[in-house]
Design a binder for these strands. Sequence first.
DNA 1: TCTTTATTCAAGCGTTCAATTGATTACTAT
DNA 2: ATAGTAATCAATTGAACGCTTGAATAAAGA
Lengths: 220, 220
Amino acid sequence: MAHREFKRKIYAEFARIGNALGSARRLELLDLLAQGPRHVEALAIETDMSVANVSQHLQVLRQARLVDAEREGAKALYRLADKHVLDLWLTLRSVAEERFADLGQFRREVDVYDEDSLVPRDELESLIRDRTAVLIDTRPTREYEHGHLPEAISMPMDELPKRLHELPQDRPIIAYCRGDYCLFADEAVALLREKGFEAHRLEGGWPEWWAEDRAVAGGG
Amino acid sequence: MAHREFKRKIYAEFARIGNALGSARRLELLDLLAQGPRHVEALAIETDMSVANVSQHLQVLRQARLVDAEREGAKALYRLADKHVLDLWLTLRSVAEERFADLGQFRREVDVYDEDSLVPRDELESLIRDRTAVLIDTRPTREYEHGHLPEAISMPMDELPKRLHELPQDRPIIAYCRGDYCLFADEAVALLREKGFEAHRLEGGWPEWWAEDRAVAGGG
DNA sequence: TCTTTATTCAAGCGTTCAATTGATTACTAT
DNA sequence: ATAGTAATCAATTGAACGCTTGAATAAAGA
């Protein structure tokens, strides 16, 4: 094969993947799929898009081999094609964070955000093992069931207000959710503090934890 | 700030970067810039594009903060914005390699390719230190000068045929170039073997080496 | 079998994108 | 000043994209 032809072909393949990452809507879908597999309609509801539009974006992601679909009777279950796709997404995000100052700015403008009490992932394991803190997963139940951090208690954000009595007052509570740009954990921390608990937010969420090959629970 | 507005904004920022990665031409430029800084015209010549077209693609990359420009009088010198951009590009490429079988296929169809004698990067350091092998950099001189592997001898592919006498016949020669998808090193290995040398190709090239924070030489 | 549900396909329309061309700006050298 | 060089800008073209709408499948349930 000629050199120029070879180059043209390989860059075209790489660009196919880049192109799939070039739409905010598709990244939103990818980010949701990083939490666990989902049906088309669920994605449409969560992202506020039409089902047809979601379906078409999923085709693009699928042609770029970033997601896989599995048919379950009438439904189609989509998931990330593999863990390296998550790596790619997280790398893209971290480059964006470094290079765009306004991303951090947006974050800080969100009212529930508290920058100072983030718990690094490396510190979490010992805190939980020694039972010096309690870990709660504030994502929807479905996502918790698909996979969660070891020892984490499922406490979806919408149930939290009526389940406060289940949490200890004498130990700090650490909340996590879908990741750095998800606000469930921030809301949980804000609510818990208002009610007199000591609460902190884990740095990152399920995808960051999972991508780093740390111990996990649940799923199958 | 409202949640939905927040989400829309951050995904739009992420997509700006994804979008910049969604053109084969821009990836070609990025890949060249991974070798070292370059002027617009040099990029145009190497990629066979018009200067105006290159300039416009560079604007897109610059708006995505993937490259930076520095003015040198009448000229503009472009470079990767930082090392994390290289990480992103290499991650994208490795996802592509895993997910698209035909990429490896294209590679194997190139006549000078020899899959079996790749030297892993981890083995290189001891081979060079003990002087059991000689390392040659087959990229153009400019790129060698910008930065190269320790102990590497500059031996640009187009000069190699008339400089064979500089190389030892009693030790293996290891060649590297711009990376996995660059063919200079393959060509060098093919030529050297034809002339009776023992020759091997390093796995990856300068960008892969540099991205892994290994020891380097040259540059400034 | 007929309906319902979940998803994909196909057509259409306005928008954005890639590449070309020629003009323009900014600097250098004579 | 004047010519030359390097890069960018502006206007244009056709192609590709994003989203909507409505039809087409394909499986599940009555």
